[in-house]
């Protein structure tokens, strides 16, 4: 490809508008700065997703018949938020809720965009946690019950610590995906890196800023992916 693409008739034009060194140097610092907003949104979404995902997973695990509504809620929740494209949730919540005419700062797209991401990703994280919880052998619950531990204590001290550890690699992969999906918030307003790249593009009539943005994402996601793979492999070795 590296050999053939430059032979295409439009290559010179593409090179000028996508791989322009001068534009790259001019826009890169601005892009990096905008990327800090992505990082910030990620940083405050991630713990919320972790907590909400865990709660949903726990709701789906309740076994008492009296708490069935809780369980049903968990099921409906994951069905809905895994079934709708992220960008649609961002649009609906990001434009819909501020449209209610809430006072500042509650009309901010930062808040509602983040909420949309949290709601969506929590559904995926919940499924990962649930897989982890179900992967813990029934005999662990039996042992805990035989000691007279309550089911809440059994979950908290026996099942969850094992389950959460077991699904670290799977969750890492979800959080890598989240890091990229933060860019979707650009559609409802926040000037994060993708939008900043768009601004530069319009300003300079050049697409190079998008390439710069892609490189910045890769600089974060490639090491994170490698690390997740490393954790996964280590876990596979430990269990075999």
């Amino acid at each position: 490809m590296i050999l053939l693409v430059p032979l295409a008739p439009g290559w010179e034009a593409v090179k000028k508008s996508f791989f322009n060194a001068e534009v790259f140097a001019r826009t890169f610092p601005g892009l990096l700065e905008a990327f800090l907003l992505d990082v910030a949104i990620f940083a405050w979404s991630a713990p919320l997703i972790f907590i909400l995902g865990l709660l949903i997973a726990l709701a789906r695990d309740v076994r008492a018949p009296a708490l069935y509504p809780l369980r049903l809620f968990g099921i409906v929740y994951t069905d809905i938020f895994r079934g709708v494209p992220v960008i649609l949730v961002i649009y609906l919540i990001g434009f819909g809720v501020p449209g209610l005419g809430l006072p500042r700062p509650w009309n901010s797209p930062y808040i509602w965009g983040t909420v949309a991401l949290v709601l969506t990703y929590a559904a995926y994280v919940a499924e990962v946690f649930r897989t982890g919880i179900e992967s813990i052998h029934q005999s662990q619950r039996s042992a805990a019950a035989s000691l007279g531990l309550s089911s809440a204590d059994t979950m908290r001290f026996v099942i969850l610590p094992q389950a959460v550890r077991r699904v670290v690699p799977a969750n890492m992969n979800l959080f890598i995906a989240l890091q990229k999906d933060v860019a979707l918030l650009s559609f409802i307003g926040p000037v994060e890196i993708f939008r900043q790249a768009g601004v530069y593009k319009s300003l300079l009539a050049n697409f190079t800023p998008y390439v710069g943005a892609a490189l910045i994402f890769l600089a974060i996601t490639i090491p994170a992916t490698r690390y997740a793979d490393y954790l996964l492999n280590r876990q596979l070795r430990e269990r075999s």
Binding site: A143, S146, G148, L149, V158, P161, Q162, R165
Partner: peptide, 29 residues
């Protein structure tokens, strides 16, 4: 629960909690 606290049980496959040390296993309940 109160009944099980009065009746101890040991299983064929041990069923120790693998993420806890021996003494933590014993002290949890």
């Amino acid at each position: 629960q109160p009944v099980r606290q009065r009746i101890g049980m040991v299983f064929q496959s041990f069923n120790l909690f693998p993420h806890m040390t021996a003494v933590e296993n014993v002290m949890l309940a």
